[in-house]
C-alpha cells in the first residue's frame, strides 16, 4: 500500500508526463543532437558521420559570409529595437491619456492587428507597396516630384525597408506592454508630483519613465532576441538580396543546412546564435537585478 506521499509523487509525474514527453522529443533531444552535429561531418546521402572536432566552428567563424550575415542581423536589431521600443513608448505615452472608449477600441485595433497577422501573409502586401515601378509608395514620392526609391532593390535601402515592415508589424506588441506598465505607476506618486508643481512632462521624465525602466529593458531584450532570429520577412521579401545585403544569421544557417546540405556547419552556426542569445539574456538579467535592487 503506497503512502499518501508516494501517491502524490506518482500523480505529479503522471500530470507532467505529456508535457515533458513532448519537451523531450521535440526540444531537448534535437538540442542535444544539434550539439553533436556541430562536431560531426555528415555525408548528406548516406548520413554517415565522422568526428571533426572544431572544424565546423572553424569553417563558420572564418567564413566572411557568416560575419556579413551577423553584421546584417545586428544592423537590423539596432534599427528595429530603436523603432519598435522608441515608437512604442511614444505611442504608449500618448495612449495613456484620457481617450474616449470607442476611439481607444479603434486605436487598439489599428495598432494591434498587424501583431496578430503573420509576416508570411503581409509580406505580399509590402512587396507590392515597395515595388519600384508599380508600388504605392513610389507613386506618391514621384507625385511630390522626388526621384523614386529602390526600396527593395537598392542595397543601401533594402534593410531599412525590412525594418519599416518589422516596426509596422511589431510596434503594437510593445505599445500594449508599455501602456500597461505606465498605467501601473501608482496614482499617489503622480498626485504628489502634481501637488509639488511638476509639469506633466517633468512628471513623465522624472517619475514615470524611471518607474517603468525595468519594463523598457524587458522590451529591449525581447526585441533583441527576436531580432537575432529574424527570418520569415526577409526570406519572403528579398530572399537575402540584393547581393547579401539583407541576409540574416538564420538564413545563413538555413542555406548551409538545407540548401548546401552541410548539416554540421548549419548546426555550428545555430549554436553560435544560441550563445549570443544566452549572453544577451544574461546581460538583461544582470541589469534587471541592478534596477530591482535600487
Amino acid at each position: 500500500m503506497a503512502t499518501l506521499r508516494q501517491r502524490e509523487t506518482l500523480a505529479a509525474y503522471g500530470f507532467l508526463a505529456p508535457a515533458y514527453l513532448i519537451y523531450l522529443l521535440f526540444l531537448a533531444i534535437p538540442m542535444v543532437a544539434s550539439l553533436l552535429l556541430s562536431v560531426l561531418e555528415v555525408d548528406r546521402l548516406t548520413l554517415a558521420t565522422q568526428f571533426v572536432g572544431w572544424a565546423n566552428f572553424d569553417w563558420v567563424l572564418t567564413d566572411p559570409r557568416f560575419w556579413k550575415t551577423f553584421g546584417n542581423t545586428f544592423y537590423f536589431i539596432a534599427l528595429a529595437v530603436v523603432g519598435n521600443v522608441g515608437l512604442g513608448l511614444g505611442l504608449a505615452v500618448l495612449l495613456d491619456r484620457n481617450i474616449p472608449g470607442p476611439l481607444l477600441y479603434l486605436f487598439r485595433l489599428a495598432y494591434f492587428l498587424p501583431v496578430l497577422v503573420s509576416l508570411a501573409f503581409v509580406s505580399f502586401i509590402w512587396r507590392f507597396m515597395f515595388s519600384f515601378d508599380l508600388g504605392a509608395i513610389n507613386y506618391y514620392i514621384r507625385m511630390l516630384g522626388l526621384p523614386p526609391v529602390g526600396w527593395l532593390t537598392d542595397k543601401n535601402v533594402a534593410m531599412f525597408s525590412i525594418v519599416i515592415i518589422d516596426v509596422w508589424k511589431n510596434v503594437g506588441f510593445f505599445v500594449i506592454i508599455l501602456l500597461a506598465a505606465l498605467q501601473g505607476v501608482p496614482r499617489n506618486l503622480m498626485e504628489a508630483a502634481r501637488i509639488d508643481g511638476a509639469s506633466p512632462f517633468t512628471a513623465l521624465r522624472r517619475i514615470k519613465l524611471p518607474y517603468i525602466a525595468p519594463v523598457i529593458l524587458f522590451c529591449v531584450t525581447y526585441a533583441t532576441i527576436g531580432g537575432l532570429q529574424v527570418f520569415d520577412s526577409i526570406k519572403i521579401i528579398t530572399d537575402g538580396g540584393p547581393g547579401d545585403s539583407t541576409r540574416s544569421v538564420v538564413m545563413y544557417m538555413f542555406s548551409e543546412a538545407f540548401s548546401a546540405g552541410e548539416l554540421g556547419t548549419g548546426a555550428a552556426s545555430a549554436l553560435t546564435l544560441l550563445v549570443v542569445i544566452a549572453i544577451v539574456t544574461a546581460i538583461q538579467l544582470t541589469l534587471g537585478r541592478r534596477f530591482a535592487g535600487r
Binding site: F26, P30, V249, F254, A267, L273, L274, A278
Partner: peptide
C-alpha cells in the same frame, strides 16, 4: 524540472529544426 523549462525558453527554432528534419 521547472528549471529545465527555462532552458527551453531560450532555444531558437533554428537550433532544433535540423535534427527535427532528420527525426
Amino acid at each position: 524540472l521547472f528549471g529545465l523549462l527555462l532552458v527551453g525558453l531560450m532555444v531558437p527554432h533554428a537550433l532544433v529544426v535540423i535534427p527535427l528534419f532528420y527525426g
